[in-house]
Design a protein around this nucleic acid. Structure first.
Lengths: 341, 341
DNA sequence: TTGTACGCGTTATCAT
DNA sequence: ATGATAACGCGTACAA
């Protein structure tokens, strides 16, 4: 059990000064003579030396840490974005501290305090509705922030996410083209997240604009199963004016709705189903569920880019940028009607 | 943009010494008079002071950081375990640094170096086959390690995972009871992970012991699609001696196999399907896919417990503990035959 | 090209 | 009960 060695020990072992060792592991390796370099390399290797990032951070004020706040780590969308975030961080020489809040404001505050304590240099945030005091404080201290998939009321920050209007338009165009005319849009409660509001609002507006019959249903997925079941049953039973379709505001909704439709033995396609968020199993549920895929990896990388750009240019306070990416439609059987061949 | 304040500023503002402020935020708050406490609290709050964890770590050698290495962050099983790990960390006052290696040994080494640099106090590892030099070095320096779901050859460390033998036995018993007698076990290449070897070996042994017809197929999921397709087709076409069933060694395999079975228009149940790892969509693919669920949350928490126990008792070097949890069978339609009512 | 000396923010030790 | 001071490991002026 070798104790962890310090820069001083390496210096002694190599017969050089701390400074030289520091330079060797820092950005000034070139300034060292070849002789010194190899001696230091040898000693460091033999002693298993690794610079202490804590000490580095202390000294330079640079933790090389990016923090990420995730509302629900078990949501595949979040994980996919996180994958992109992590890649981008690594590529740019940063490490990532991921915190899952389980949609709990208290956990969110705790985690923010922690990330503050570790002096993260930037923050990628996908979390609950209202900006906490901790968050404001972080922003106030000049820590670059990026909001994922949602904006916060009364809080200025960069954000990157989906072009919700385009996504809804694309969904409606597809459903219309496939002959569905009576639509039900189902979402989790929109109060929490701006993107939910955006999708909901656009749906209402465009359904009217296109002269379709459309209604909306907002309810919590946990605890609202019964209500969801009843609502869908009522929707399906009603005397049809046109073929019916359900539009799901995100992947969780798609999952819950698919469960209900199967329980009610509805035939996908005869009743249309289109979900926002592509999930690995959507192609498996016969005859395949049509989805709108988000470019998750790009979103994640873009978030980090945004962050690091603010960091590099020391540009806080310029007006927030909002980046919206286009969804991609993946047509499958759940939006192909069989009753009218 | 308020600059981040330090302990010294708080001390000055409150008219006390650094030491007292340090005590207030540390474990010795009681030793301070009520008067001092309230003055410090007020100043700290007004200045938005948070102790710098970097400095703390540097001074005390305690980073309060746990590292986690994940082979594939997009694997739901990994995420589920990670959820448990994170909960346990938080509950015990630690933060978690998660690193995804995408099954790439190079990334694994990089990440280990990073985690070393941040002086993580413990490491939860779910990663590729051979222990890298970095890993050995970490272990050698006394950092507690826990292996998740796999042991490493020629490398002693605690581990927590599934009781693979029990899982396979349970699967075979279920399939046998349901009348399947000709089995195909499909796994990703076992060289990478010990748990794959354990499942594979147990399958071979028990199939023989029970007098069943069993064969095995090992292949990489990416790039091996064609081969998988052919192998399953051959298995299905063969003249049956008994009802056939496929046993999938993990969730990824289940996904791939389900795709193939659907493409070949096999009726689930008529050809049995049982997968290790419960996934949210397994109940959705008609008539439901029978699975063996791992207690992911418990596994994650248990891993952290194991770590922290080593830490607390400063007990490195006592023989490695191995903790195995039982799988739970979730029977669904994919293992219910319809041809013999 | 290489080394000396100081400070980053904190906690631990020793006084008072 | 409180404070002064010395480390912790490192980077960086500055000096040589």
């Amino acid at each position: 059990m070798t104790r962890r060695s310090t820069i001083l020990e390496v210096a002694r072992d190599a017969g050089v000064s701390k400074t030289s060792v520091s330079r060797y592991f820092g950005a000034e390796r070139d300034r060292l003579s070849a002789a010194l370099q190899s001696r230091i390399a040898a000693s460091a290797k033999r002693l298993g030396y690794h610079p202490n990032q804590m000490a580095r951070g202390l000294k330079g004020g640079r933790s090389r840490l990016i923090g990420m706040l995730v509302a629900d780590i078990r949501n595949p969308f979040s994980v996919a974005v996180m994958h992109g975030v992590e890649q981008a961080c690594r590529a740019r020489g940063f490490s990532l501290m991921v915190c899952n809040t389980d949609n709990d404001p208290a956990q969110e505050r705790d985690h923010l305090a922690l990330l503050t304590a570790y002096r993260v240099e930037g923050l990628v945030i996908n979390a609950a509705g209202q900006p906490s005091r901790e968050l404001r404080s972080l922003a106030d201290q000049g820590t670059p922030l990026v909001l994922l998939d949602r904006i916060l009321s009364d809080f200025e920050a960069d954000m990157v996410g989906l072009d919700n209007a385009q996504a809804i338009d694309m969904a409606l165009a597809h459903l219309e083209e496939r002959g569905y005319g009576e639509l039900l849009f189902i979402s989790e409660p929109p109060a929490q997240a701006s993107s939910r509001q955006a999708r909901l609002g656009r749906f209402r507006q465009q359904v009217a604009a296109r002269g379709l019959a459309g209604e909306t249903l907002c309810l919590p997925l946990e605890g609202g199963e019964r209500q969801l079941d009843d609502a869908i049953a009522a929707f399906l039973v009603r005397r049809p004016r046109a073929p019916k379709a359900v539009l799901c505001a995100n992947g969780n909704v798609t999952l819950a709705v698919t469960r209900v439709l199967q329980a009610q033995e509805a035939r996908l396609g005869d009743v249309g189903l289109l979900g926002i968020d592509e999930l690995e199993w959507c192609s498996l549920v016969a005859p395949g569920i049509t989805t709108l895929a988000q470019p998750t990896d790009v979103i994640g990388r873009s978030a980090v880019d945004s962050l690091l750009q603010r960091l590099a240019t020391a540009d806080r306070r310029s007006p927030p940028r909002r980046i919206h990416y286009q969804a991609e439609l993946i047509p499958r059987g759940s939006t192909r009607r069989r009753d009218t061949p």
